[in-house]
Simulated scan of single mutants.
Amino acid sequence: MNQKLIKTIGKLINFTSYLFPHYAAKMAVKIFSTPRKGKLNDEEKNYLRSAIQETIIYEDVSIKTYLWSGTKDTILLVHGWESNAFRWKDLIEILKSEHYNIMAIDAPAHGDSGSKIFNAVLYSECIYAVIKQFDPSVVIGHSIGGTASALAINNHTLATEKLILLGAPSNFDEVIDNYVKIMGYNKKVIKAINNYYLKHFGYFPEFYTVENFSKNIHAKGLIIHDKKDRIISYKDALHISKYYKNSKLIKTVGLGHGLKNETVYNHILEFLNA
């Protein structure tokens, strides 16, 4: 979506907010919650066929899971926005060679999972449903998948042993703020969006910050974040590290937000084998 079109849509929603604020909020949240990409292409489908596939249901959302059987601990891989389980291919192959039992999932509205919308709160509950059924001892989450994993573990006080966060945001409020700035929404739309979250999730977006979703996490943590991450600021990693007491922060430079790199994988293996 080009910048001119984005600003045009933003102006239309701003105008609508003066007449129908609830409808404007609904449209703004829908745009924010609808991934433009992340569905599986043929190459990705072919690779994922090497896994044992199963679908589990959370409420009315079908979540596709992938399992590569191994003899060691079960590791759950949780991807981020506009991605899917295939993003873990390189790490999966490394973990397979180490004989780990590996699981990956597709988020709501991504990959081969159901739903037309995505939000981090919904994702966290889907992650909880998967953890409850398969009981992984380790969870590795990238970007918003990491934050949603932390939220799931915290909210349900899960006995996960290790949690690895790769390029994860420390709060949802900042993610929404970035979206608001991109669209150019006025204060009326922002207020309506906040009220929408309060109505549907019970909290304003600013509630979902690391101070509030790390208190019940007892898992040993590893945080890896790139100093020059242009998607999620390195400040977020510092923020998480401050409140996630049982964790270690590793800074990389020049690996970007994706963190698909041998150095990162070596840090992960060292942490898993410790």
Results as ranks from 00 to 15, higher is better:
123 Y>P: 02
99 H>A: 15
125 E>T: 08
118 F>E: 07
82 E>L: 03
148 A>S: 15
123 Y>S: 05
120 A>F: 12
179 Y>S: 14
56 I>N: 08
135 D>V: 09
238 L>F: 07
112 D>P: 11
63 I>F: 12
230 R>Q: 12
183 M>V: 04
108 P>Y: 02
173 D>V: 03
162 K>T: 01
248 K>E: 15
67 L>V: 12
183 M>K: 03
28 A>C: 02
241 S>D: 09
170 S>V: 01
244 Y>I: 00
3 Q>L: 08
262 E>N: 13
271 F>H: 02
258 G>V: 02
124 S>D: 05
75 I>H: 11
239 H>W: 04
195 N>K: 09
258 G>A: 10
274 A>M: 08
81 W>A: 09
45 K>S: 15
16 T>A: 13
171 N>F: 00
14 N>E: 05
53 Q>V: 05
176 I>F: 12
207 F>E: 10
13 I>F: 02
237 A>S: 06
184 G>N: 09
257 H>W: 03
188 K>Y: 13
273 N>Y: 10
158 L>H: 05
173 D>Q: 13
60 D>E: 08
64 K>I: 09
181 K>V: 02
143 S>C: 13
271 F>C: 04
70 G>M: 06
100 Y>L: 06
236 D>K: 12
132 K>V: 10
60 D>W: 00
266 N>M: 10
192 A>K: 02
148 A>M: 04
5 L>K: 14
211 E>A: 14
202 G>T: 05
210 V>D: 10
266 N>V: 01
93 E>A: 11
90 D>A: 15
35 P>F: 14
39 K>C: 07
65 T>Y: 01
182 I>H: 12
232 I>H: 08
32 F>A: 14
226 D>W: 01
7 K>L: 10
77 L>D: 00
273 N>L: 10
94 I>A: 06
228 K>N: 14
176 I>M: 12
143 S>K: 13
141 G>P: 01
248 K>V: 13
182 I>N: 11
253 V>R: 11
65 T>S: 01
59 E>P: 10
41 N>Q: 11
190 I>Y: 01
130 V>F: 02
29 V>W: 03
4 K>Y: 06
134 F>W: 15
145 G>L: 07
215 K>R: 15
251 K>P: 01
142 H>E: 10
87 R>T: 14
252 T>R: 12
192 A>H: 00
254 G>A: 15
137 S>V: 13
54 E>T: 11
46 N>C: 05
259 L>Y: 04
210 V>F: 14
88 W>S: 14
84 N>K: 01
25 A>L: 03
128 Y>Q: 10
172 F>E: 03
103 M>C: 08
210 V>M: 11
148 A>L: 05
118 F>D: 06
177 D>S: 12
180 V>K: 09
98 E>A: 08
101 N>W: 07
140 I>E: 13
143 S>I: 11
33 S>K: 04
7 K>H: 08
264 V>I: 11
30 K>M: 06
110 H>R: 08
186 N>T: 06
73 D>C: 11
263 T>S: 08
91 L>F: 10
53 Q>G: 12
91 L>D: 03
191 K>C: 05
42 D>N: 11
107 A>V: 03
4 K>A: 09
247 S>F: 07
141 G>F: 07
213 F>Q: 06
34 T>F: 09
98 E>P: 00
273 N>G: 08
211 E>K: 15
